[in-house]
Design a protein around this nucleic acid. Structure first.
Lengths: 176, 176
DNA sequence: GAAAAATAATTAGGAACCTAATTATATAGG
DNA sequence: CCTATATAATTAGGTTCCTAATTATTTTTC
């Protein structure tokens, strides 16, 4: 058994309800096993999706972060400050600096010093960057759509609602 | 504006439906914007949860991976092979080797050469490792429960079902 | 029973993101 | 005005996980 692709055997990594219940019972805690299971499954799904996304974007010579930066640039008229990019993407400025470095090296964006404020250097989407987005759009969006193809419109709405509420709850892990 | 904690401003990073629709319209593609939005939101949520989990486990001197390894060890009688751990956790053997290195350095697990097969070295949960799990269980599970506290039991069931189907669909990103 | 193939764990090196410290410029307070 | 503070971007160094190559041992095959 070669464990091809990523050492994951499809089903093995999925945590089960009995597994969660057993963990809770071991310490005699008063916790809902289903709640714990939701947390575990979402974590699993997030990690799996993150990994799959990297593979997907690598096909176009990009990473998830670099694609999202390009897309945000396109969404905002082709010129955005690094600090704004960091905010839009939900990553740190240090990370944005690194993303820009590679995108600039590859000719997909360029940096331009601001006239108004000497501290700022705005990031510009080059023609090459724009054509990269254009070129990958059909396949990219088709795959995203296929990904949620097992849910109908109604179910997607419900999923978005529930996911939003769980996302709000994530702060329970970091609070205090 | 200091952008404390992680440079994320609560709402800013959440992708919206109009944003997805605009991206699709730009290239005149026949794709459902809601489907794209589900993909984007799940990615966002996964990344956010992953980061929050690291902060959570860091409180106990662990990382997400190291905690999961300890928990799996406890779930399986305190002795498991590295290759099995890799399979259970859905990570590579190389990663497991690294996790064990640190856990062993901290005294939470130990390695023992197999008698039957000279290639194998099983991993053992030490008493210190077991007490670490015991000690963190109440707070750990309480926080997980709080995280999904905005969903009632019925909604959690629905969420698990829908998440499971989306998770199946993730392969659409990597197929072909 | 020795050569070839498979398997277990590890090592080496890379990618993505992080926090904290640094550099350069702009703004405010006395 | 000029020192003190705030802000923009970057650099330095760390964490987590990955793929590919390596080492050691077992199993298969002829």
């Amino acid at each position: 058994m070669t464990n091809h692709s990523n050492g994951r055997k499809q089903e093995d990594a999925i945590p089960s309800l009995v597994q969660s219940q057993r963990q809770i019972d071991r310490y005699g805690l008063d916790v809902d096993a289903q709640a714990v299971l939701v947390a575990a499954r979402l974590m699993e799904a997030g990690a799996k999706l993150g990994h799959a996304a990297e593979i997907h974007f690598a096909r176009f010579g990009l990473s998830t972060g670099r694609y999202r930066l390009l897309a945000d640039l396109e969404d905002n008229g082709g010129e955005v400050l690094p600090s704004q990019l960091a905010e839009h993407l939900g990553v740190t400025r240090a990370t944005v600096t690194g993303l820009i470095d590679i995108l600039e090296r590859d000719g997909l964006v360029s940096r331009r010093a601001s006239a108004k404020d000497g501290r700022q250097k705005s990031v510009i989407l080059t023609e090459l960057g724009a054509s990269k987005l254009r070129e990958m759009a059909p396949e990219h969006f088709a795959r995203l759509e296929a990904m949620v193809g097992l849910l109908n419109t109604e179910e997607r709405s419900v999923f978005l609602d529930l996911l939003g509420r769980v996302t709000q709850g994530i702060s329970a892990l970091t609070d205090e």
